[in-house]
Design a protein around this nucleic acid. Structure first.
Lengths: 152, 152
DNA sequence: GGGGAATACTTGAACCCTCAACTAAGTTGT
DNA sequence: ACAACTTAGTTGAGGGTTCAAGTATTCCCC
């Protein structure tokens, strides 16, 4: 039995459209406010929030669910832009540690309130407090269903 | 006041991760089962469901919320692959009508049960019936908040 | 009915992501 | 201690999306 119920089909179409529009909106805003795609901005935020503003490539990849390849390209590009720096670990010389530069820290501090404000006005203003709770639970469940094979 | 409440911040992070994983899963599955990105597959489904299996470029773009540029590239690529055909309208010669080929119809009929089955097992199996209703309502609200400026 | 604006789409370049293949460094077994 | 394997990350090619600019056709209206 492969079909979806009517209710599921309806929810699915709304979800796919919401996902599509959300992705677009996130990229457009990150591009406008930070000059980069949202995937890059998320990396900056992760580094910003990490103790010492530094993480290894693999650590970043597993937390953000990015492929190492994607991450390597991203880091190369952002290093050229001056937002972060690679440095090779001394005790395991395969490992790269990535850390924000001062410019990167400044960028996150400038952009994050803009992001938050837009998220508030475009997303959360549409939802009741109860729906926010529901959204968190549903999103977690979806992540759980799609994230099999990860344990980071 | 630009900040988010703790509950909103939590919901937001879960939502962004769910969106990311969902996008990836959709693309991977469409690539595996149909040899194309999910955005292309959605276009085939739209055509499949349209009366006469045909739509204009602008009609497609507004229903799927794709830019005309993106759509033109997609249609060019899929026309080369043989899934659909362009044909210029005779009464307004700016307008292109896009229609599925027989191969395109066959492809949709082959792939869509695979998609449905995976959606069921990876997404809806994680959700209660009540959460499915909630998800539909929340997704609609998010679409409404992000979709300002469209009325297709 | 002719010139300007609007509509419908196309194109090319730049950039991002994926996939597959690769390098380099550490680990394991014997 | 050496080969085989695993881990960590990089690289290049190919394809998709965006953005800006361009073409062709129709509409408007004086």
């Amino acid at each position: 039995m492969t079909g979806l119920t009517n209710a599921q089909q309806h929810a699915w179409r709304e979800l796919v459209m919401a996902t599509h529009l959300l992705d677009e909106a996130l990229d457009r805003q990150s591009q406008r406010d930070g000059g980069m795609p949202h995937a890059y901005y998320k990396l900056l935020v992760l580094l910003y929030e990490s103790p010492g503003h530094g993480e290894t490539m693999s650590g970043i990849a597993s937390q953000l669910r990015y492929s190492l390849s994607r991450l390597a390209h991203a880091v190369t590009s952002m290093e050229k832009s001056g937002w972060l720096l690679r440095s090779r670990s001394t005790d395991d010389r395969r490992v790269q540690t990535v850390a924000l530069t001062d410019a990167g820290v400044t960028l996150v501090r400038r952009v994050s309130p803009l992001q938050a404000s837009e998220v508030r006005s475009r997303v959360f203003s549409q939802l009741t407090d109860m729906q926010v709770e529901q959204l968190a639970a549903i999103s977690s469940a979806i992540v759980a269903g799609l994230d099999a094979g990860f344990n980071g």
